[in-house]
Design a protein around this nucleic acid. Sequence first.
RNA 1: GGCGGC
DNA 2: GCCGCCAACATA
Length: 500
Amino acid sequence: MFVNKGGKQRTSRAGWSGEGEVAIDPDYPTRLNFYQKAPLLEISIEEFEQFALDRLQVLKAIEAAQLRGRDEAEIFKQVEAVCRERMCLSASAGSMAIRHDERRKDHISHFILRLAYCRTEDLRSWFLRYECALFRHRLMAVDAAEKQRFIASLNLGHKQLSKKEKDLMRTELMASCAHIPNFNFENESFLEVNFEDALDLVQHRRVYLRNGYAYVPAMEQMALVIGEFKRRLAASLEMYAKALPRMDEDERLMPVLLNISRQNTGKEYTTDAVAGKVTADDVEPLSALFPLCMSHLHNGLRSEGHMKHGGRMQFGLFLKGIGLPLDEAIVYWRRAFHKSTDDEFQKKYVYNIRHNYGMEGKRADYTPYSCARIITSNQPGAGDHHGCPFRHFSPDNLRRELLVSGVDEADVQEMLQLVTGGHYQVACTRLFEVTQLARARQQGKAAANVASAETITHPNHYFEQAFNLMSPGKQQNGMEIESGANASQHAIGKRWRGSN
RNA sequence: GGCGGC
DNA sequence: GCCGCCAACATA
Ligand code: SF4
Protein backbone atom coordinates (compact mmCIF):
# COMPACT_ATOMS: atom_id res chain seq x y z
CA MET A 1 0.00 0.00 0.00
CA PHE A 2 1.13 3.54 -0.54
CA VAL A 3 2.83 5.50 2.15
CA ASN A 4 1.05 8.71 2.72
CA LYS A 5 3.73 11.33 2.55
CA GLY A 6 1.47 13.90 4.04
CA GLY A 7 0.16 11.60 6.73
CA LYS A 8 0.42 14.06 9.54
CA GLN A 9 -2.20 16.36 8.14
CA ARG A 10 -4.48 17.66 10.81
CA THR A 11 -6.35 20.76 11.42
CA SER A 12 -4.04 23.47 10.06
CA ARG A 13 -5.86 26.76 10.25
CA ALA A 14 -8.84 25.50 8.40
CA GLY A 15 -11.05 25.54 11.42
CA TRP A 16 -11.26 29.28 11.10
CA SER A 17 -12.62 29.40 7.62
CA GLY A 18 -15.55 27.97 5.75
CA GLU A 19 -17.08 25.41 8.02
CA GLY A 20 -16.80 27.64 11.03
CA GLU A 21 -17.35 25.75 14.25
CA VAL A 22 -17.78 22.28 12.85
CA ALA A 23 -15.41 19.86 14.52
CA ILE A 24 -12.95 18.09 12.29
CA ASP A 25 -12.80 14.33 12.20
CA PRO A 26 -9.17 13.26 12.54
CA ASP A 27 -9.74 10.19 10.37
CA TYR A 28 -11.54 12.04 7.62
CA PRO A 29 -10.71 15.73 7.79
CA THR A 30 -12.56 16.48 4.58
CA ARG A 31 -15.14 14.86 2.36
CA LEU A 32 -12.46 14.46 -0.26
CA ASN A 33 -10.13 11.52 -0.11
CA PHE A 34 -7.14 10.28 -2.09
CA TYR A 35 -7.62 6.84 -0.60
CA GLN A 36 -3.96 6.39 0.17
CA LYS A 37 -4.47 4.20 3.17
CA ALA A 38 -6.51 1.03 3.12
CA PRO A 39 -9.20 0.94 5.79
CA LEU A 40 -9.36 -1.63 8.53
CA LEU A 41 -11.98 -4.08 7.46
CA GLU A 42 -13.99 -4.70 10.54
CA ILE A 43 -17.24 -5.10 8.81
CA SER A 44 -20.03 -7.57 8.36
CA ILE A 45 -20.57 -9.40 5.09
CA GLU A 46 -23.90 -7.64 4.58
CA GLU A 47 -22.33 -4.26 5.06
CA PHE A 48 -19.45 -5.26 2.81
CA GLU A 49 -21.73 -6.08 -0.06
CA GLN A 50 -24.05 -3.17 0.52
CA PHE A 51 -21.20 -0.68 0.51
CA ALA A 52 -19.76 -2.10 -2.67
CA LEU A 53 -23.12 -2.18 -4.35
CA ASP A 54 -23.93 1.39 -3.45
CA ARG A 55 -20.68 2.69 -4.81
CA LEU A 56 -21.04 0.62 -7.93
CA GLN A 57 -24.45 2.13 -8.44
CA VAL A 58 -22.96 5.59 -8.18
CA LEU A 59 -20.23 4.83 -10.71
CA LYS A 60 -22.70 3.30 -13.11
CA ALA A 61 -24.97 6.29 -12.74
CA ILE A 62 -22.09 8.54 -13.66
CA GLU A 63 -21.46 6.46 -16.74
CA ALA A 64 -25.11 6.71 -17.70
CA ALA A 65 -25.31 10.41 -16.98
CA GLN A 66 -22.29 11.13 -19.14
CA LEU A 67 -23.82 9.22 -22.00
CA ARG A 68 -27.25 10.72 -21.74
CA GLY A 69 -26.73 14.10 -20.14
CA ARG A 70 -26.90 16.99 -22.54
CA ASP A 71 -24.60 19.49 -20.87
CA GLU A 72 -22.21 19.69 -17.97
CA ALA A 73 -24.82 21.12 -15.62
CA GLU A 74 -27.36 18.41 -16.28
CA ILE A 75 -24.78 15.69 -15.75
CA PHE A 76 -23.76 17.31 -12.50
CA LYS A 77 -27.33 17.34 -11.29
CA GLN A 78 -27.91 13.70 -12.08
CA VAL A 79 -24.69 12.59 -10.45
CA GLU A 80 -25.40 14.69 -7.41
CA ALA A 81 -28.79 13.05 -6.99
CA VAL A 82 -27.39 9.54 -7.03
CA CYS A 83 -24.55 10.47 -4.72
CA ARG A 84 -26.97 11.87 -2.22
CA GLU A 85 -29.03 8.72 -2.33
CA ARG A 86 -26.35 6.05 -2.15
CA MET A 87 -23.14 7.65 -0.98
CA CYS A 88 -24.09 10.80 0.85
CA LEU A 89 -21.30 12.91 2.32
CA SER A 90 -22.43 15.72 4.59
CA ALA A 91 -20.36 18.81 5.14
CA SER A 92 -21.67 19.79 8.50
CA ALA A 93 -25.12 18.33 8.90
CA GLY A 94 -25.80 15.74 11.56
CA SER A 95 -23.45 14.63 14.23
CA MET A 96 -19.81 14.00 13.79
CA ALA A 97 -20.47 10.30 14.25
CA ILE A 98 -22.78 10.30 11.29
CA ARG A 99 -20.33 12.15 9.13
CA HIS A 100 -17.66 9.71 10.18
CA ASP A 101 -19.80 6.76 9.16
CA GLU A 102 -20.55 8.31 5.80
CA ARG A 103 -16.91 8.91 5.07
CA ARG A 104 -15.94 5.50 6.32
CA LYS A 105 -18.41 3.97 3.95
CA ASP A 106 -16.98 6.01 1.11
CA HIS A 107 -13.50 4.91 2.10
CA ILE A 108 -14.28 1.23 2.49
CA SER A 109 -16.44 0.93 -0.58
CA HIS A 110 -13.71 2.47 -2.68
CA PHE A 111 -11.27 -0.15 -1.54
CA ILE A 112 -13.63 -3.04 -2.05
CA LEU A 113 -14.20 -2.00 -5.62
CA ARG A 114 -10.51 -1.35 -6.09
CA LEU A 115 -9.98 -4.97 -5.19
CA ALA A 116 -12.86 -6.22 -7.27
CA TYR A 117 -11.92 -4.17 -10.32
CA CYS A 118 -8.17 -4.69 -10.49
CA ARG A 119 -8.38 -8.11 -12.10
CA THR A 120 -8.40 -7.27 -15.81
CA GLU A 121 -7.41 -4.35 -17.98
CA ASP A 122 -11.04 -3.81 -18.90
CA LEU A 123 -12.21 -3.61 -15.34
CA ARG A 124 -9.31 -1.44 -14.28
CA SER A 125 -9.83 1.19 -16.92
CA TRP A 126 -13.57 1.31 -16.34
CA PHE A 127 -13.13 1.72 -12.63
CA LEU A 128 -10.37 4.28 -13.03
CA ARG A 129 -12.42 6.37 -15.42
CA TYR A 130 -15.45 6.63 -13.20
CA GLU A 131 -13.61 6.94 -9.91
CA CYS A 132 -11.90 9.94 -11.40
CA ALA A 133 -15.22 11.29 -12.56
CA LEU A 134 -16.63 10.86 -9.08
CA PHE A 135 -13.61 12.53 -7.53
CA ARG A 136 -13.89 15.39 -9.97
CA HIS A 137 -17.54 15.76 -9.20
CA ARG A 138 -16.90 16.03 -5.51
CA LEU A 139 -14.04 18.41 -6.00
CA MET A 140 -16.45 20.72 -7.77
CA ALA A 141 -19.20 20.16 -5.23
CA VAL A 142 -17.37 21.03 -2.03
CA ASP A 143 -16.86 24.60 -0.94
CA ALA A 144 -13.64 26.43 -1.65
CA ALA A 145 -12.34 26.35 1.90
CA GLU A 146 -12.69 22.61 2.24
CA LYS A 147 -11.15 22.10 -1.17
CA GLN A 148 -8.15 24.19 -0.28
CA ARG A 149 -7.75 22.44 3.02
CA PHE A 150 -7.77 19.13 1.22
CA ILE A 151 -5.30 20.15 -1.43
CA ALA A 152 -2.94 21.57 1.14
CA SER A 153 -3.04 18.32 3.06
CA LEU A 154 -1.83 16.41 0.02
CA ASN A 155 1.58 18.05 -0.05
CA LEU A 156 1.82 17.70 -3.77
CA GLY A 157 4.91 19.84 -3.94
CA HIS A 158 3.34 22.59 -5.99
CA LYS A 159 5.68 25.47 -5.38
CA GLN A 160 4.18 28.89 -5.80
CA LEU A 161 6.25 31.32 -7.82
CA SER A 162 7.48 34.43 -6.07
CA LYS A 163 6.60 37.78 -7.52
CA LYS A 164 10.10 38.12 -8.83
CA GLU A 165 10.20 34.74 -10.58
CA LYS A 166 6.83 35.37 -12.04
CA ASP A 167 7.88 38.68 -13.52
CA LEU A 168 10.99 37.14 -15.00
CA MET A 169 8.82 34.82 -17.11
CA ARG A 170 6.11 37.32 -17.70
CA THR A 171 5.81 37.11 -21.48
CA GLU A 172 5.94 33.32 -21.62
CA LEU A 173 3.43 32.91 -18.85
CA MET A 174 1.01 35.35 -20.37
CA ALA A 175 1.29 33.64 -23.72
CA SER A 176 0.47 30.30 -22.12
CA CYS A 177 -2.70 31.79 -20.68
CA ALA A 178 -3.91 33.36 -23.88
CA HIS A 179 -6.76 30.86 -24.07
CA ILE A 180 -8.25 31.91 -20.73
CA PRO A 181 -11.17 34.35 -21.32
CA ASN A 182 -10.40 37.47 -19.34
CA PHE A 183 -7.13 36.65 -17.76
CA ASN A 184 -5.57 38.99 -15.29
CA PHE A 185 -1.87 38.33 -15.02
CA GLU A 186 -1.27 40.49 -11.99
CA ASN A 187 -3.85 38.76 -9.83
CA GLU A 188 -3.05 35.21 -10.87
CA SER A 189 -0.44 33.21 -9.07
CA PHE A 190 1.52 30.43 -10.71
CA LEU A 191 2.67 27.04 -9.54
CA GLU A 192 5.87 25.34 -10.53
CA VAL A 193 5.36 21.59 -10.89
CA ASN A 194 7.24 18.71 -12.46
CA PHE A 195 6.09 18.63 -16.02
CA GLU A 196 5.03 14.99 -15.81
CA ASP A 197 2.60 15.99 -13.09
CA ALA A 198 0.82 18.21 -15.55
CA LEU A 199 0.73 16.03 -18.63
CA ASP A 200 -2.92 16.71 -19.35
CA LEU A 201 -2.33 20.43 -19.40
CA VAL A 202 0.88 20.04 -21.34
CA GLN A 203 -0.90 18.08 -24.02
CA HIS A 204 -3.39 20.84 -24.50
CA ARG A 205 -0.61 23.43 -24.52
CA ARG A 206 -2.14 25.26 -21.62
CA VAL A 207 1.02 25.77 -19.65
CA TYR A 208 4.45 27.21 -20.10
CA LEU A 209 7.22 24.61 -20.05
CA ARG A 210 10.84 25.15 -19.13
CA ASN A 211 13.54 22.61 -18.39
CA GLY A 212 11.40 19.95 -16.84
CA TYR A 213 8.95 22.23 -15.10
CA ALA A 214 5.47 23.28 -16.01
CA TYR A 215 4.15 26.62 -14.85
CA VAL A 216 0.49 26.31 -14.09
CA PRO A 217 -1.89 29.15 -13.30
CA ALA A 218 -3.44 28.52 -9.90
CA MET A 219 -6.94 28.31 -11.36
CA GLU A 220 -5.92 25.15 -13.20
CA GLN A 221 -4.85 23.44 -10.02
CA MET A 222 -7.96 21.28 -9.99
CA ALA A 223 -6.79 19.58 -13.15
CA LEU A 224 -3.47 18.84 -11.49
CA VAL A 225 -5.09 17.31 -8.46
CA ILE A 226 -7.35 15.13 -10.55
CA GLY A 227 -4.40 14.08 -12.65
CA GLU A 228 -2.52 13.10 -9.54
CA PHE A 229 -5.50 11.18 -8.22
CA LYS A 230 -5.69 9.29 -11.47
CA ARG A 231 -1.99 8.46 -11.58
CA ARG A 232 -1.95 7.11 -8.08
CA LEU A 233 -5.08 5.09 -8.48
CA ALA A 234 -3.86 3.64 -11.78
CA ALA A 235 -0.56 2.66 -10.21
CA SER A 236 -2.28 1.12 -7.25
CA LEU A 237 -4.61 -0.88 -9.45
CA GLU A 238 -1.61 -2.35 -11.26
CA MET A 239 -0.13 -3.35 -7.92
CA TYR A 240 -3.34 -4.91 -6.76
CA ALA A 241 -3.59 -6.84 -10.00
CA LYS A 242 -0.17 -8.35 -9.40
CA ALA A 243 -0.87 -9.07 -5.76
CA LEU A 244 -4.31 -10.54 -6.29
CA PRO A 245 -3.34 -14.01 -7.52
CA ARG A 246 -1.55 -14.64 -4.25
CA MET A 247 -4.62 -14.11 -2.10
CA ASP A 248 -6.76 -15.98 -4.59
CA GLU A 249 -6.50 -19.44 -3.00
CA ASP A 250 -7.10 -19.13 0.69
CA GLU A 251 -9.41 -16.16 0.79
CA ARG A 252 -13.13 -16.55 0.85
CA LEU A 253 -13.09 -13.01 -0.46
CA MET A 254 -12.55 -13.97 -4.07
CA PRO A 255 -16.03 -15.25 -4.88
CA VAL A 256 -17.57 -12.16 -3.38
CA LEU A 257 -15.33 -9.90 -5.41
CA LEU A 258 -16.01 -11.81 -8.60
CA ASN A 259 -19.66 -11.44 -7.96
CA ILE A 260 -19.39 -7.72 -7.42
CA SER A 261 -17.48 -7.00 -10.60
CA ARG A 262 -20.18 -8.68 -12.61
CA GLN A 263 -23.07 -7.15 -10.77
CA ASN A 264 -25.76 -5.48 -12.77
CA THR A 265 -28.02 -2.67 -11.91
CA GLY A 266 -30.36 -5.26 -10.52
CA LYS A 267 -32.62 -5.51 -13.52
CA GLU A 268 -34.90 -8.49 -13.66
CA TYR A 269 -34.81 -10.77 -16.60
CA THR A 270 -37.75 -12.01 -18.54
CA THR A 271 -37.44 -15.17 -20.56
CA ASP A 272 -39.18 -14.51 -23.82
CA ALA A 273 -38.10 -15.90 -27.13
CA VAL A 274 -34.39 -16.34 -26.67
CA ALA A 275 -32.08 -14.72 -24.22
CA GLY A 276 -34.55 -12.04 -23.22
CA LYS A 277 -33.27 -8.58 -22.58
CA VAL A 278 -29.52 -8.62 -22.68
CA THR A 279 -27.51 -5.95 -20.89
CA ALA A 280 -24.05 -4.61 -21.58
CA ASP A 281 -22.74 -6.73 -18.73
CA ASP A 282 -24.23 -9.87 -20.20
CA VAL A 283 -22.26 -9.75 -23.42
CA GLU A 284 -19.10 -11.01 -21.81
CA PRO A 285 -20.62 -14.12 -20.20
CA LEU A 286 -22.75 -14.89 -23.23
CA SER A 287 -19.74 -14.77 -25.53
CA ALA A 288 -19.17 -18.44 -24.75
CA LEU A 289 -22.16 -19.13 -26.97
CA PHE A 290 -21.02 -17.03 -29.93
CA PRO A 291 -20.06 -18.57 -33.27
CA LEU A 292 -16.41 -18.39 -34.20
CA CYS A 293 -16.70 -15.24 -36.30
CA MET A 294 -18.30 -13.36 -33.43
CA SER A 295 -16.07 -14.61 -30.66
CA HIS A 296 -13.14 -13.66 -32.83
CA LEU A 297 -14.49 -10.14 -33.18
CA HIS A 298 -15.25 -10.05 -29.50
CA ASN A 299 -11.70 -11.09 -28.64
CA GLY A 300 -10.25 -8.51 -30.96
CA LEU A 301 -12.38 -5.83 -29.41
CA ARG A 302 -11.28 -6.80 -25.95
CA SER A 303 -7.60 -6.95 -26.71
CA GLU A 304 -7.46 -3.82 -28.84
CA GLY A 305 -10.03 -1.66 -27.15
CA HIS A 306 -11.26 -0.79 -30.59
CA MET A 307 -12.86 -2.22 -33.72
CA LYS A 308 -12.84 -1.15 -37.35
CA HIS A 309 -15.95 -0.24 -39.24
CA GLY A 310 -16.63 -3.60 -40.89
CA GLY A 311 -16.42 -5.35 -37.57
CA ARG A 312 -18.67 -2.86 -35.86
CA MET A 313 -21.32 -3.54 -38.44
CA GLN A 314 -21.09 -7.30 -38.24
CA PHE A 315 -20.73 -7.53 -34.49
CA GLY A 316 -23.03 -4.65 -33.62
CA LEU A 317 -25.96 -6.05 -35.56
CA PHE A 318 -25.29 -9.50 -34.19
CA LEU A 319 -25.48 -8.12 -30.66
CA LYS A 320 -28.73 -6.42 -31.48
CA GLY A 321 -29.90 -9.81 -32.71
CA ILE A 322 -29.15 -11.53 -29.43
CA GLY A 323 -31.32 -9.02 -27.61
CA LEU A 324 -29.03 -6.15 -26.65
CA PRO A 325 -31.21 -3.03 -26.73
CA LEU A 326 -30.02 0.33 -28.00
CA ASP A 327 -29.16 1.95 -24.69
CA GLU A 328 -27.28 -1.09 -23.51
CA ALA A 329 -25.47 -1.24 -26.83
CA ILE A 330 -24.25 2.30 -26.37
CA VAL A 331 -23.03 1.50 -22.89
CA TYR A 332 -21.39 -1.66 -24.15
CA TRP A 333 -19.50 -0.01 -26.98
CA ARG A 334 -18.52 2.93 -24.88
CA ARG A 335 -17.04 0.61 -22.34
CA ALA A 336 -15.33 -1.55 -24.95
CA PHE A 337 -13.63 1.43 -26.61
CA HIS A 338 -11.65 2.19 -23.55
CA LYS A 339 -9.02 4.11 -25.48
CA SER A 340 -11.50 6.65 -26.82
CA THR A 341 -12.55 9.76 -25.01
CA ASP A 342 -16.23 10.38 -24.32
CA ASP A 343 -16.13 13.14 -26.83
CA GLU A 344 -14.61 11.12 -29.63
CA PHE A 345 -16.97 8.25 -28.91
CA GLN A 346 -20.00 10.50 -29.00
CA LYS A 347 -18.95 12.08 -32.27
CA LYS A 348 -17.71 9.07 -34.20
CA TYR A 349 -19.75 6.10 -33.13
CA VAL A 350 -23.04 6.86 -31.41
CA TYR A 351 -24.80 8.02 -34.53
CA ASN A 352 -23.99 4.81 -36.37
CA ILE A 353 -25.10 2.63 -33.51
CA ARG A 354 -28.41 4.45 -33.34
CA HIS A 355 -28.71 4.16 -37.08
CA ASN A 356 -28.30 0.39 -36.89
CA TYR A 357 -31.14 0.31 -34.42
CA GLY A 358 -33.40 2.25 -36.74
CA MET A 359 -33.31 5.43 -34.74
CA GLU A 360 -31.70 7.68 -37.32
CA GLY A 361 -32.39 8.76 -40.90
CA LYS A 362 -34.53 6.30 -42.80
CA ARG A 363 -35.20 4.49 -39.50
CA ALA A 364 -34.68 0.99 -40.83
CA ASP A 365 -34.27 -1.70 -38.22
CA TYR A 366 -31.48 -3.66 -39.85
CA THR A 367 -31.32 -7.42 -39.66
CA PRO A 368 -27.96 -8.88 -38.64
CA TYR A 369 -25.78 -10.22 -41.45
CA SER A 370 -26.30 -13.82 -42.51
CA CYS A 371 -23.48 -16.32 -43.04
CA ALA A 372 -23.91 -16.02 -46.80
CA ARG A 373 -23.42 -12.27 -46.70
CA ILE A 374 -20.49 -12.47 -44.31
CA ILE A 375 -18.79 -15.08 -46.43
CA THR A 376 -19.28 -13.43 -49.80
CA SER A 377 -19.10 -9.69 -49.35
CA ASN A 378 -16.73 -7.26 -47.69
CA GLN A 379 -13.48 -9.21 -47.46
CA PRO A 380 -11.53 -8.28 -44.33
CA GLY A 381 -8.29 -6.40 -44.85
CA ALA A 382 -5.34 -5.68 -42.58
CA GLY A 383 -6.50 -4.72 -39.11
CA ASP A 384 -9.99 -6.07 -39.69
CA HIS A 385 -11.47 -8.85 -37.62
CA HIS A 386 -14.76 -9.28 -39.38
CA GLY A 387 -15.65 -11.92 -41.94
CA CYS A 388 -15.98 -15.68 -41.48
CA PRO A 389 -12.93 -17.39 -40.03
CA PHE A 390 -13.70 -20.55 -41.96
CA ARG A 391 -13.71 -18.59 -45.19
CA HIS A 392 -11.21 -15.81 -44.62
CA PHE A 393 -8.52 -17.23 -42.39
CA SER A 394 -5.48 -18.98 -43.73
CA PRO A 395 -5.61 -22.72 -42.90
CA ASP A 396 -2.81 -22.11 -40.45
CA ASN A 397 -4.60 -19.35 -38.56
CA LEU A 398 -7.83 -21.23 -38.57
CA ARG A 399 -6.19 -24.30 -37.08
CA ARG A 400 -4.65 -22.19 -34.31
CA GLU A 401 -7.92 -20.43 -33.59
CA LEU A 402 -9.73 -23.76 -33.35
CA LEU A 403 -7.14 -25.37 -31.13
CA VAL A 404 -7.31 -22.39 -28.81
CA SER A 405 -11.05 -22.90 -28.60
CA GLY A 406 -10.33 -26.35 -27.23
CA VAL A 407 -11.16 -28.41 -30.30
CA ASP A 408 -9.18 -31.61 -30.53
CA GLU A 409 -6.88 -32.46 -33.39
CA ALA A 410 -9.14 -34.92 -35.16
CA ASP A 411 -12.05 -32.50 -35.29
CA VAL A 412 -9.80 -29.71 -36.48
CA GLN A 413 -8.69 -31.93 -39.35
CA GLU A 414 -12.27 -32.64 -40.27
CA MET A 415 -13.18 -28.99 -40.30
CA LEU A 416 -10.16 -28.02 -42.36
CA GLN A 417 -11.20 -30.70 -44.81
CA LEU A 418 -14.67 -29.21 -45.10
CA VAL A 419 -13.19 -25.77 -45.56
CA THR A 420 -11.00 -26.88 -48.46
CA GLY A 421 -14.15 -28.17 -50.09
CA GLY A 422 -15.72 -24.73 -49.66
CA HIS A 423 -18.23 -25.93 -47.06
CA TYR A 424 -17.65 -23.17 -44.55
CA GLN A 425 -21.01 -23.31 -42.87
CA VAL A 426 -20.82 -27.07 -42.53
CA ALA A 427 -17.48 -26.68 -40.79
CA CYS A 428 -19.10 -24.09 -38.55
CA THR A 429 -21.89 -26.50 -37.75
CA ARG A 430 -19.33 -29.15 -36.91
CA LEU A 431 -17.74 -26.72 -34.48
CA PHE A 432 -21.11 -26.19 -32.92
CA GLU A 433 -21.44 -29.92 -32.41
CA VAL A 434 -18.07 -30.53 -30.86
CA THR A 435 -18.32 -27.55 -28.52
CA GLN A 436 -21.85 -26.43 -27.68
CA LEU A 437 -23.64 -29.68 -28.27
CA ALA A 438 -20.94 -31.77 -26.65
CA ARG A 439 -20.99 -29.64 -23.53
CA ALA A 440 -24.75 -29.77 -23.29
CA ARG A 441 -24.63 -33.56 -23.49
CA GLN A 442 -22.04 -33.69 -20.82
CA GLN A 443 -24.33 -31.69 -18.59
CA GLY A 444 -27.19 -34.04 -19.36
CA LYS A 445 -29.41 -31.49 -21.04
CA ALA A 446 -32.59 -32.89 -22.49
CA ALA A 447 -32.29 -30.72 -25.57
CA ALA A 448 -28.94 -32.29 -26.40
CA ASN A 449 -30.51 -35.62 -27.32
CA VAL A 450 -29.82 -35.29 -30.99
CA ALA A 451 -27.10 -36.82 -33.11
CA SER A 452 -26.26 -33.70 -35.07
CA ALA A 453 -27.25 -30.09 -35.47
CA GLU A 454 -28.90 -28.41 -38.42
CA THR A 455 -26.54 -26.56 -40.69
CA ILE A 456 -25.80 -23.07 -39.47
CA THR A 457 -27.08 -20.39 -41.82
CA HIS A 458 -26.85 -17.35 -39.63
CA PRO A 459 -24.62 -16.29 -36.72
CA ASN A 460 -27.66 -15.50 -34.60
CA HIS A 461 -29.00 -18.91 -35.46
CA TYR A 462 -25.84 -20.40 -34.00
CA PHE A 463 -26.22 -18.36 -30.86
CA GLU A 464 -29.87 -19.18 -30.35
CA GLN A 465 -29.27 -22.88 -30.83
CA ALA A 466 -26.47 -22.78 -28.31
CA PHE A 467 -28.58 -20.79 -25.90
CA ASN A 468 -31.53 -23.12 -26.15
CA LEU A 469 -29.30 -26.03 -25.35
CA MET A 470 -28.74 -24.51 -21.96
CA SER A 471 -32.11 -23.72 -20.49
CA PRO A 472 -34.64 -26.52 -21.09
CA GLY A 473 -32.87 -29.35 -19.27
CA LYS A 474 -32.08 -28.18 -15.80
CA GLN A 475 -31.66 -31.57 -14.31
CA GLN A 476 -29.48 -30.55 -11.45
CA ASN A 477 -31.74 -27.94 -10.00
CA GLY A 478 -29.86 -24.76 -10.64
CA MET A 479 -26.53 -26.22 -9.60
CA GLU A 480 -25.00 -25.55 -12.99
CA ILE A 481 -22.00 -23.78 -11.65
CA GLU A 482 -19.59 -26.62 -11.06
CA SER A 483 -15.99 -27.35 -11.90
CA GLY A 484 -15.90 -26.65 -15.60
CA ALA A 485 -18.26 -23.77 -15.18
CA ASN A 486 -17.68 -20.77 -17.33
CA ALA A 487 -19.27 -17.40 -17.06
CA SER A 488 -22.08 -18.10 -19.50
CA GLN A 489 -23.74 -20.45 -17.14
CA HIS A 490 -23.99 -17.72 -14.56
CA ALA A 491 -25.96 -15.49 -16.85
CA ILE A 492 -28.20 -18.31 -17.90
CA GLY A 493 -28.66 -19.36 -14.33
CA LYS A 494 -29.95 -15.90 -13.59
CA ARG A 495 -32.58 -16.27 -16.23
CA TRP A 496 -33.73 -19.59 -15.01
CA ARG A 497 -34.23 -18.29 -11.58
CA GLY A 498 -36.07 -15.30 -12.97
CA SER A 499 -38.33 -17.39 -15.15
CA ASN A 500 -39.78 -19.78 -12.64
C1' G B 1 -15.94 1.79 -44.54
C1' G B 2 -18.42 4.17 -48.49
C1' C B 3 -21.37 8.36 -50.15
C1' G B 4 -22.86 13.14 -49.38
C1' G B 5 -23.10 18.35 -47.19
C1' C B 6 -20.52 23.00 -45.13
C1' DG C 1 -12.14 20.19 -39.45
C1' DC C 2 -17.37 19.48 -38.42
C1' DC C 3 -21.57 16.84 -39.62
C1' DG C 4 -25.63 13.20 -41.75
C1' DC C 5 -26.91 8.84 -44.04
C1' DC C 6 -26.36 4.01 -45.54
C1' DA C 7 -25.89 -1.17 -45.37
C1' DA C 8 -29.71 -6.35 -43.91
C1' DC C 9 -33.06 -10.00 -44.78
C1' DA C 10 -32.26 -16.57 -41.07
C1' DT C 11 -36.25 -17.97 -38.75
C1' DA C 12 -40.06 -22.02 -36.88
S1 SF4 D 1 -20.34 -19.92 -40.84
FE1 SF4 D 1 -21.55 -18.22 -40.31
S2 SF4 D 1 -21.68 -18.27 -38.13
FE2 SF4 D 1 -20.11 -19.67 -38.65
S3 SF4 D 1 -18.33 -18.47 -38.49
FE3 SF4 D 1 -18.89 -18.32 -40.58
S4 SF4 D 1 -20.17 -16.57 -40.65
FE4 SF4 D 1 -19.94 -17.04 -38.53
